[in-house]
Write a protein that binds this DNA or RNA. Structure first.
Lengths: 206, 206
DNA sequence: CATGATAAATAAATTTTACTCACTGTATAT
DNA sequence: ATATACAGTGAGTAAAATTTATTTATCATG
């Protein structure tokens, strides 16, 4: 099923799998090197053969997740027409990832941004790439007149990401379920149309 | 200036002040007990007289900040009429806090939610209280018809907080400035009216 | 105003954790 | 055969967090 097998030593794979497995249940901070090694069935020293430190391993796990995420989302956006429809799909795909991959959600939402090193990792470079895709959709919407021109694109992006992440917070922390379809539909609706009441005929579908 | 002086031992005060000061510059994880003690001019052991552990100290710092924040916001909301106007003020006051109190912003946005213990602290109880205030304003808006009734209040709240926190992320991480007035105006505008273009006469001020 | 009780603070010991390093086995290519 | 490169080990170290025993200061009361 996985293709990353080639030339990746079994010990390294076991370590990464162990880390993923432990992050499923607990916070990064509470996971010790000794535990990771034990779970992987490997000695502690080996971890430092493949990773600079514990955080580097965390970043590696995130990177692997993010590669799959980006691959998926690029495919997801194929054939979708219209900036708002693209944004809708981006929202849906993001929530779908968080809903079905707790470890991914935990790392992104809770465990990375408090470390300065994160911003120099390959994982963060992938995040920037994704941000570029989103910003592209927003700019397209501005150019086409589908999006109001009096709001900064960065603010729009922040609101989208903020809404998504906050909506998945309890999923990560308290293991609550998230309905991908319903949540993404509602977030798109809110961000596209706002929360203020207005005459019904004015709240269009685009 | 401060009134919390009474019966609070000087050592404890010094420890809390030291922690606040260190959090101004660096991430929680990188701050050691030895540093805190040195900065406070106190021995390491004393910290454990007043706090269960390093995180407990962090939660205490947050609690003190949050008490001030809640006091302030309750005052800020006095005399404001209309749910959307209240929400606007809540957005403004939140950003104002983050913009002017980096330590507060750092703790809330980056350093708490990754620890299970946080959700049993007094600080978190205060957060719940604040959430109650916000939810009250949203419900008021629903009852009065100022807010669309087809969006879950929790989603509205998540979007507001998400937008605020993401807009302050770079302020915390990269020390960038945040314009309170402009940012809060834009966030309120986006959330109240949405990002989709629509005929101008329909985008009301309420 | 001495004194016992209580709280504040210390100093050093202990434990836990992350991380290092010198080494062993093994497979492969020369 | 043997050198080389790589996967993996395991014992060790240093630094960090936390505990404990002890001393110092505070202060109300007989």
């Amino acid at each position: 099923m996985k293709e990353e097998n080639l030339s990746v030593p079994p010990g390294k794979q076991k370590i990464v799998r162990a880390m993923r497995s432990l992050l499923e249940e607990r916070a990064f901070e509470t996971i010790t090197i000794a535990e990771i090694a034990a779970e992987a069935g490997v000695t502690e020293g080996l971890l430092y053969k493949y990773f600079r430190d514990k955080r580097d391993l965390l970043h590696h796990v995130l990177k692997e997740h993010y590669e799959m995420f980006i691959t998926q989302i690029e495919r997801d956006l194929q054939g979708i027409d219209g900036a708002l429809n693209k944004l809708r799909k981006i929202i849906w795909a993001s929530i779908e990832r968080y809903a079905n991959h707790k470890v991914f959600a935990r790392i992104i939402i809770l465990e990375t941004r408090n470390s300065a090193k994160y911003f120099e990792t390959e994982a963060y470079a992938l995040v920037r790439q994704f941000v570029g895709i989103v910003d592209g959709a927003i700019k397209e919407g501005l150019a086409a007149g589908a999006i109001r021109a009096d709001l900064p694109p960065t603010l729009i992006r922040n609101t989208i990401f903020g809404a998504i992440e906050h909506s998945c917070l309890r999923r990560v922390i308290f293991n609550e379920a998230v309905s991908t379809n319903e949540t993404s539909r509602l977030i798109a609706d809110l961000i596209f149309n706002g929360i203020a009441s207005r005459p019904k005929q004015e709240r269009g579908k685009t």
